[in-house]
Computed example of a mutant assay.
Amino acid sequence: MEYNSGPMTEAMYYVLLALMNPNDRYSLMNVITEISHGRVNMGSGTLYGVLVRIQKSGLITLSEDDGRRKNYIITNEGKEALQSEYNRLVALVNDGIILKEGDLNESTKTETK
């Protein structure tokens, strides 16, 4: 299975961010909470599902498996996908600048006059 480069889920995005440094599944939960400033708290079931999915997509791989603890690391393809998603999110925020500049309806009214 290969990653289709569509929009990522929030869980997938944070797992890939957290795997910029190799980590095991249990440490990942804490790292995700830390890098999201407490906004994302991922349970072990959700995390396991995301890890399986993105490993099948080739975005992460096992860096170590001693039978008891598995350590994961992001692949080059994963880094490219993460950068692409970051660029997409930045573009969304930049497109939304109109919200900071005033009421959307007001700017539409002046353009149609």
Results as ranks from 00 to 15, higher is better:
S57R: 05
L99H: 11
R39Q: 14
G6R: 09
D103P: 01
G43A: 03
V40P: 02
V40M: 09
N105P: 00
N105V: 00
G6M: 02
L92K: 04
M29C: 12
S57M: 12
L104Y: 15
V50N: 08
M12A: 14
E10Q: 11
T110M: 09
G49C: 02
E85D: 07
E111Q: 13
N76M: 05
I73Q: 14
V93R: 08
S84V: 00
M20N: 12
K79S: 05
N21F: 09
I60M: 05
D66T: 00
Y86C: 00
I74M: 08
I60N: 02
S63I: 04
S44T: 14
V40Q: 07
G78Y: 05
I73G: 09
V90A: 09
M1C: 01
L51T: 06
E106V: 14
R88T: 04
I74E: 03
G38M: 13
Y14K: 02
R39L: 07
Y86A: 09
V50M: 09
K56C: 06
M1N: 01
R88D: 07
G96P: 00
T61D: 06
L16D: 03
G45L: 11
R25C: 08
S36W: 04
R39P: 05
L19H: 00
M20T: 15
I35V: 13
V90Y: 04
I60A: 08
K56F: 01
P7Q: 05
P22H: 03
Y26S: 07
G49Q: 06
G58A: 05
S27M: 11
G78V: 07
E80D: 09
R69I: 14
Y86D: 13
V52Y: 11
Y48I: 00
G58Q: 04
L51H: 06
Y72W: 12
E111S: 12
Y14H: 13
N41I: 05
D65M: 03
Y72G: 03
G58M: 04
I73L: 13
E85S: 01
M1K: 01
L17E: 14
K79Y: 02
A11W: 07
T112K: 15
L82M: 06
N76I: 07
I73R: 13
V93D: 07
D103T: 11
L59C: 03
S44G: 01
M20G: 07
T61M: 15
Q55H: 13
E64P: 00
L99W: 11
G49E: 10
M29W: 07
K109P: 01
S63F: 00
Y48V: 00
A91H: 05
Y86P: 01
N94K: 15
G45T: 08
T75F: 01
M20C: 10
V93T: 13
S63A: 07
D95Y: 06
N71A: 08
I97G: 15
Q55P: 04
Q83I: 10
T110E: 14
I60W: 06
D66W: 04
L16E: 05
G78P: 05
L16G: 02
N76G: 12
E10N: 09
E111A: 14
I98D: 07
N76Y: 11
G38Q: 13
L92N: 14
V31R: 15
E85T: 05
G67F: 04
S36Q: 05
E64I: 03
L28M: 10
